[in-house]
Computed example of a mutant assay.
Amino acid sequence: MHYVLLALLFALLIGFIAGLRAMTPLAVLAWGAMLGWINLAGVPHGAWSAWLGSIVAVVILSILAIGELVTDQLPKTPSRTVPAQFGARIVIGALAGAVIGTPFGHIFSAIGAGIIGAVLGTLGGSAGRGFLAAKFGKDLPAALIEDAVAVIGGFVIVYLAGASL
């Protein structure tokens, strides 16, 4: 029971990060796997996600995550709540949930928690950023705070997930 709750909690949280920044969860999971914070290869049924710990995955996913952080600041970037953006966040939340749930032995329940987290992160992040932007009188400070929460929060979640095993 203990591992089920941990898997669901960490999947929900990493899904929430996907709602804030779609590429960040996979990038931080890749870094965490490469640094040995979370074991994706040496667990039952972990072979499917072990590729995330490779240097190639770390580099590609980091470039994509940094690119998203930059393009998010552009005025023509569509809202995260439009169907394509929202859908991508749900899919990545599900994938990230499955990855973080794998070492706990609860892939499928973690998929559902990752999806719920992505929905909450997408809607909550949009509302929170709008609130902060209104308080600051401009969007950039709110966006940078959200970036920091996504990146730092993602690394903390992955580290704590690995430490909980």
Rank of each mutant, 00 (worst) to 15 (best):
S54I: 09
L40C: 04
T71M: 09
H45S: 14
I145Q: 01
L40V: 05
T71P: 00
W51C: 04
K138I: 00
V158S: 01
A50D: 07
A133C: 08
T122W: 06
V158N: 08
V156H: 13
A47E: 15
V56I: 11
L74K: 10
K138Q: 14
V56M: 07
A161S: 05
A94S: 10
T77D: 07
S54T: 15
L144P: 02
L144D: 00
V156M: 14
L120T: 04
A84F: 13
A118L: 07
L64K: 00
F131T: 10
G125A: 01
K138T: 13
P141T: 11
K138H: 12
S49H: 06
A57Y: 08
I115N: 10
F131Q: 11
V91R: 02
I100V: 15
A161D: 12
N39H: 05
G153E: 02
P75H: 14
G154N: 04
S109F: 12
Y159T: 00
L123Q: 04
L160N: 01
I55A: 14
G53R: 08
K138C: 10
W48S: 06
L132I: 07
P75K: 15
F86G: 04
G46Q: 06
L123T: 05
W48Q: 05
A41D: 10
A65N: 03
I66N: 00
P44E: 09
I90S: 07
V59I: 15
Q73I: 00
G46A: 12
T77H: 10
A142I: 05
D147C: 01
G128R: 03
I38K: 02
L64E: 05
V70P: 03
I63V: 15
A133F: 09
L64C: 11
E68T: 03
V158T: 09
K138L: 03
G101R: 11
H106N: 14
G153K: 06
V56F: 08
A150N: 05
I100P: 07
F136L: 04
I66H: 02
A113V: 04
L52H: 12
P83T: 08
H45W: 07
I38E: 02
I60T: 01
